[in-house]
Structure formats: structure tokens, C-alpha cells
């Protein structure tokens, strides 16, 4: 086993990475928790954000503007999934998979190759794994700003329509809400954030890669679920909406810290995705199993055993 100092040296990097993925996870939170829609577009739109940002920066575009473009590229991906689902009647999960697959080709087209690197010494990148402390600060600022904006947005009439649609679409329509429109808006917003996260992630790791989004939805879900559990443990009923978003980012940080720890314990890098899938499965299963243990036939049988005389 490597010395523990190696682990501590690696942890700040995990925090920076967690904050960037936290932005993606907040995007996932919008679809998965608020809209109740498992959106697999994410695996494609994170790569699109990365590809757009890197290619634009390499062509001399100012970095902040490139990030705005990454955001809008993600928005378009969300719009496509939303259109496939609401206007063409394709089931949500399948609509996301179709967009994701199409984006794989488009991401290659945007970059012209599978991997495009960008050097922080030549371009004024916002975040980079070469400058971890400043990346952590900037990542935290992004998370805080996004949380503030979303807190405002979901308090508006438009935000209410998305929440109502995700909770009870029959009720929403009876109250005059176009549930199709609300679904599309939520998907656009969510994938916009994912695209932005992709743009930052590509800068952080110094390249945009056509495979950078593989499994992104699982990491996003892991962050959402870990954040939910931790938030509930710490704040319980006092957890408000902005708190939930912040804890989603905290969940992403915890996820990367845990990955760092298991890597340090000797897990090989190629098995991290296997590990992620297992972690998410376990966390998704816990609420179900908990409910079942309170309400199981086995226990009923035990309680109802007829004692022999």
C-alpha cells in the first residue's frame, strides 16, 4: 500500500474535480429529482460542452465566452431530447440514449479527432489540475452562483411549472400548465449546466475527449444520492432547496474523495466505473430495502408463528 501522505496529497485534486462534477450533478438533480426524468443525454452533452469549449479556445475565443458556448451547446442537446420525448412520443430514457449516441458522432465532428488537448501555459484557462487551490475556489464560486440562480428560478412562475409537472402532470395540466413545455425547459436547463461542467472539466484535465462523458450520468446520480443522504443526516427537515443543491455538489466531492481512497487502497483505475456502478446501485437500493424490511412477509411469518403446545 502507498503511504498515507500520497492520499492526502491527492485529496485537494478530488475536491476540485468534485466541485466541477458538482455542477453536472446539479444539472442531473433538475431532471432526476425535480422533473422525475432519468435523462441519459448527460453522457453525450458533457463531451459536447468540453469539445465546444476547447475548440473555441484553441481558435482564439475568450475562455468565458467559450464556456457560455459550452452551456448553450448543452442546451441544444437538451432541446433535442425534449423534442424527441414530447413531440415524437419517444420514451424518456430512449430519447436520452438516442441524443447521447448522436452526440458521440457530433463531438468527434466538432473536434475532428477523438482527443484535443489544451495547454494551460498557452491559454488563460479558468481551472486546471496544475493550479488546484485556485481551481477549488473558482469551482466553489461556480457552484454558489449556479445554486443562487436556480434558487431564484425555481421560485418563479416558470420554475413552479417544472416542479408541478415533475410531481403531478395531471394536476399541472388541469392548472393550465403545458407539461410538454415545462419538460423541455427543464431538459434544456439541465443539459446547459452539464455542457458548462463539460467545458470546465476539459480545461481542468487539459483536454476534451470523446469518451469523457462515459458514465457521467452515474457519477451525477451518485452525487445526487450521496448529497441527499448526507444533507438529510446533517440538516434533516431544515434542508431547503438551495441546501439540496449545495449538498448535491458536496455529494460529488465526497464521491471523488471516496474514489481517491479506494484507488489508494489498491483499486485499479480501470475498475473505477465498476466501483461507481456498485456504489450507485447500493445507494439506490437502500431506501427500497429499508421499506421492505419494515414490511416483509418473512417478518410477518415470524410474528404470526403458531406455537405448538
Amino acid at each position: 500500500m502507498k503511504p498515507i501522505s500520497a492520499l492526502f496529497a491527492a485529496l485537494p485534486g478530488s475536491v476540485a474535480q468534485g466541485l466541477i462534477w458538482g455542477i453536472l450533478a446539479i444539472g442531473v438533480y433538475i431532471t432526476y429529482k425535480i422533473l422525475d426524468f432519468a435523462d441519459l443525454t448527460v453522457d453525450g452533452s458533457v463531451g459536447t460542452g468540453g469539445a465546444v469549449a476547447v475548440v473555441l479556445i484553441l481558435h482564439g475565443c475568450p475562455v468565458p465566452l467559450a464556456l457560455v458556448a459550452a452551456f448553450f451547446a448543452g442546451c441544444i442537446a437538451g432541446l433535442i431530447t425534449g423534442t424527441l420525448h414530447t413531440m415524437l412520443g419517444i420514451p424518456g430514457i430512449l430519447a436520452g440514449i438516442l441524443t447521447q449516441l448522436a452526440l458521440y458522432s457530433l463531438n468527434l465532428d466538432i473536434m475532428g479527432q477523438a482527443n484535443t488537448s489544451i495547454n494551460v501555459d498557452k491559454y488563460p484557462l479558468i481551472v486546471s489540475l496544475r493550479f488546484i487551490p485556485s481551481s477549488i475556489i473558482k469551482g466553489a464560486l461556480f457552484v454558489a452562483a449556479i445554486t443562487a440562480i436556480l434558487y431564484w428560478f425555481f421560485g418563479t412562475e416558470q420554475g413552479f411549472t417544472i416542479r408541478a409537472t415533475g410531481c403531478n402532470s395531471n394536476m399541472a395540466r388541469a392548472q393550465g400548465i403545458s407539461t410538454d413545455k415545462a419538460t423541455v425547459i427543464a431538459l434544456i436547463l439541465s443539459n446547459g449546466l452539464v455542457g458548462l461542467a463539460g467545458g470546465l472539466l476539459a480545461q481542468y484535465q487539459g483536454n476534451a475527449d470523446v469518451n469523457m462523458g462515459r458514465g457521467a450520468i452515474v457519477i451525477g446520480l451518485a452525487a445526487v444520492i450521496i448529497g441527499e443522504v448526507i444533507g438529510d443526516l446533517i440538516l434533516g427537515k431544515h434542508l431547503n432547496f438551495s441546501g439540496k443543491l449545495l449538498f448535491t455538489a458536496v455529494g460529488a466531492i465526497i464521491y471523488f474523495v471516496v474514489i481517491q481512497i479506494v484507488l489508494w487502497l489498491g483499486l485499479s483505475t480501470q475498475n473505477t466505473k465498476l466501483f461507481s456502478a456498485i456504489v450507485v446501485s447500493v445507494f439506490l437500493a437502500i431506501p427500497y430495502l429499508r421499506g421492505k424490511s419494515k414490511n416483509s412477509f418473512k417478518r410477518a411469518a415470524k410474528r404470526g408463528e403458531i406455537k405448538d403446545a
Binding site: 421560485g155 412562475e157 416558470q158 420554475g159 411549472t161 416542479r163 408541478a164 394536476m171 393550465g176 400548465i177
Partner: peptide
């Protein structure tokens, strides 16, 4: 269960109903 949004507050449900038939933009939901 059909007529209300379970995960939203009582006052938020009322606010949604108050705006029935209105265009919903970016002013406060309640």
C-alpha cells in the same frame, strides 16, 4: 392524489391554481 402536487407546499399549490390561465413567466411563483 390527482388534484394536488404532493411534494409542493400547500401555499405553493394554491399559487399554482391562482395562475390558472395566465402566462407564466419569471415573476415570483408566490
Amino acid at each position: 392524489m390527482t388534484g394536488t402536487a404532493a411534494t409542493m407546499e400547500i401555499q405553493e399549490n394554491l399559487a399554482l391554481a391562482k395562475r390558472r390561465g395566465n402566462k407564466r413567466m419569471l415573476s415570483w411563483g408566490i
